[in-house]
């Protein structure tokens, strides 16, 4: 890891890439690190490509905007790779040497021989786990896919602490109005309505995150 970790999250609108980035950034600042978080908005419609970017560092971060050269790439939906629902093509464009990729999928993503070779040259690591399945089974809703993705990230990288992420989650859903965009806010209400109580929401989200560990598989090139 370099002293600054740049994380690109690619998914589809409604999967919570913006929220995941926010929670991750919040957790990092709670851990005493520095973070900047920014979403890259297209028209931010449901199931359209959506990306967000998180930078985490021990020093002050000035750089902002799209992360062109990530250390970590998180793919929230298999279609990002298989259907090219992605701002950045191919999905690992710009990945730094030694970089990581985390893919939501029940099975390993299909890669061409060229892609395998390119990733091998980069000394990259690719992990996959069934984030949406876990979200449904443990959290009771596919809207917790982003939680599973964060759980996988923490499990693999330990970039933030478990207490940090717990506090960040509480802040995000526990009250106060979060603002990323109007559409995200509307989705929030839908999510909240699925739970009797906020505390239940937090517990279930944590459960989803922690359920990921044993399911993580690594792809070898």
């Amino acid at each position: 890891m370099t002293k600054k970790t740049s994380i690109r999250m690619s998914g589809l609108g409604g999967q919570g890439v913006v929220t995941a980035a926010h929670i991750l950034g919040s957790a990092a600042t709670r851990d005493g690190l520095v973070s900047t978080v920014n979403p890259f908005f297209g028209a931010e419609k449901r199931l359209a490509p959506a990306e967000s970017y998180v930078r985490v560092s021990s020093d002050r971060i000035f750089e902002r905007g799209e992360i062109l050269f990530p250390n970590v790439i998180m793919i929230f939906h298999p279609h990002v790779i298989s259907l090219g629902k992605c701002y950045t093509m191919p999905f690992f464009a710009g990945l730094q040497p030694g970089g990581l990729m985390l893919v939501n999928g029940d099975s390993a993503p299909e890669l061409s021989q060229d892609e395998r070779e390119a990733l091998k040259r980069l000394d990259a690591k690719l992990y996959y786990f069934p984030a949406t399945k876990l979200a449904l089974e443990v959290g009771g809703t596919d809207l917790a896919t982003n939680m599973a993705m964060l759980g996988g990230l923490i499990e693999i990288t330990h970039i933030v602490s478990w207490p940090g992420i717990t506090d960040a989650l509480a802040e995000r859903f526990g009250g106060g109005k979060f603002v990323a965009s109007a559409t995200t806010a509307a989705l929030d209400d839908a999510l909240k309505s699925k739970y009797e109580k906020i505390s239940q929401l937090l517990e279930q989200n944590m459960a989803v995150m922690q359920a990921v560990g044993p399911t993580i598989k690594e792809v070898t090139f």
Partner: peptide
């Protein structure tokens, strides 16, 4: 736009 409006920072 976005680089400041939508970016989360201290």
């Amino acid at each position: 736009g976005f680089f400041v409006t939508h970016t989360r920072d201290k």
